[in-house]
């Protein structure tokens, strides 16, 4: 029997916060994507913990779907990064200011 779910949920909250801070602070698009992965992993940990606490397999099925959506998101996102790099030769979000008035 592992620890009570509160520990896991608290840890997931901390990891989600670190990912959110990174997403807000960093300017490299690749690292911003990695921070999104951190936040998705915190959500996955929450799903598995709640699935254990309620003894319900539905939470684990949702983690499966989150994995699929994360994979699709990374594929399309990195495609956009590569396309942008071809035009501007940068992966820094601040340099993409073509629409600035």
């Amino acid at each position: 029997m592992s620890l009570s779910g509160a520990w896991y949920l608290g840890l997931a909250g901390v990891v989600f916060t670190i990912g959110a801070i990174g997403l807000l602070v960093r300017r490299n698009v690749l690292i911003m994507f990695m921070c999104i992965e951190l936040m998705l992993n915190a959500a996955n940990l929450t799903f598995v913990t709640v699935a254990r606490m309620l003894n319900d397999i539905g939470g684990q099925v949702l983690v499966f779907f989150v994995l699929v959506v994360a994979a699709a998101e990374v594929v399309v996102g990195l495609g956009i990064v590569v396309t942008n790099f071809r035009r501007r030769a940068t992966t820094v979000a601040d340099d993409l200011d073509q629409l600035k008035g």
């Binding site: 779910g5 509160a6 949920l9 709640v50 699935a51 254990r52 606490m53 309620l54 003894n55 319900d56 397999i57 539905g58 684990q60 099925v61």
Partner: peptide, 13 residues
């Protein structure tokens, strides 16, 4: 509560 809701809605683990 840390977690609320019905138990084993979809199925047991």
């Amino acid at each position: 509560h840390w977690v609320t809701g019905a138990r084993q809605v979809v199925g047991p683990i």
